[in-house]
């Protein structure tokens, strides 16, 4: 048969447009990943400069979200992509939204960190913050890797990790609530930690969403709103 070049579009510009979307998304992802780890470090080390940086970066993330949305609209309108190209543009648009929300959550953690600097250190919760923070940070990295490499196995790993984060979050909640009941004077400070943990847990959820969009992008399978087990089963069948 004819030697076909299936990697490239006939239109070089179309290739460039899609490549641009990918690059821009990964750059935005890099920013959010940095924001996440900075926010965790800011709150655990009471570094208000770092917290300030997280808050400033938020604007840049928002700006990139709007730019990416505009570019996705442009590709849809001008190229009418189909099949994997269509899935790529849809996935980029959805992942962009999740990244922006992750940025918002990191911003919240930075705010909590500033409250704690003002109100004084919380008596508990830092170990949990560091622990969950490190799992969630890794999830963000893995979800972005799975997109960059179109790697479904990495995406599944993110979903598995999300389950772990949910468990860790619940157990941290139980412990902190018990502590507050014992020492009601600590409530306002411990609440700051709780809000930060909640934000981290949400970042984990968004990383899982990204992983689900990657699975849709690569396999064309919609694996939202199902258990990790079911996700694995469907992928095995595919």
């Amino acid at each position: 048969m004819d030697k076909l070049n299936l990697d490239q579009h006939i239109s070089q510009q179309f290739n460039a447009d899609l490549e641009d979307l990918k690059t821009q998304l990964l750059e935005m992802g890099g920013l959010v990943e940095q924001q996440t780890i900075n926010a965790v470090n800011a709150i655990t080390t009471a570094d208000s400069d770092l917290a300030e940086r997280v808050i400033i970066t938020e604007e840049e993330v928002d700006h990139r979200e709007m730019k990416l949305d505009e570019n996705c609209t442009m590709v849809l309108a001008r190229r009418q992509p189909a099949a994997s190209d269509l899935r790529m543009v849809l996935a980029v648009a959805k992942i962009t939204r999740d990244l922006e929300r992750m940025g918002d959550e990191a911003h919240k953690i930075a705010k909590m960190s500033m409250h704690l600097t003002e109100d004084g250190e919380a008596p508990r919760g830092y170990v949990e913050l560091r622990h969950i923070g490190s799992i969630v940070h890794q999830m963000v990295i893995t979800s972005l890797d799975s997109f960059a490499r179109f790697d479904v196995d990495l995406a599944v790993k993110v979903a598995q990790e999300d389950k772990k984060v949910d468990q860790e979050y619940k157990s941290a909640m139980r412990e902190l609530i018990t502590y507050m009941m014992e020492d009601p004077r600590s409530i306002s400070r411990v609440m700051n930690i709780i809000w930060a943990l909640r934000a981290l847990e949400r970042i984990g959820d968004h990383a899982r969403n990204i992983a689900e969009h990657v699975i849709y992008l690569v396999k064309g399978l919609d694996v939202r709103h199902i258990s990790v087990k079911e996700m694995e089963r469907q992928l095995q069948q595919n």
């Binding site: 030697k3 990918k22 940095q34 840049e60």
Partner: peptide, 26 residues
């Protein structure tokens, strides 16, 4: 912003290792 420069380098690394969306070579 230094974070951006750092991330651009990371992104370049990621893109180098990209595979085809579908595992179907010509």
């Amino acid at each position: 912003m230094e974070a951006i420069a750092e991330n651009t380098a990371k992104v370049d690394n990621m893109i180098d290792t990209k595979k085809d969306v579908q595992n179907n070579s010509p």
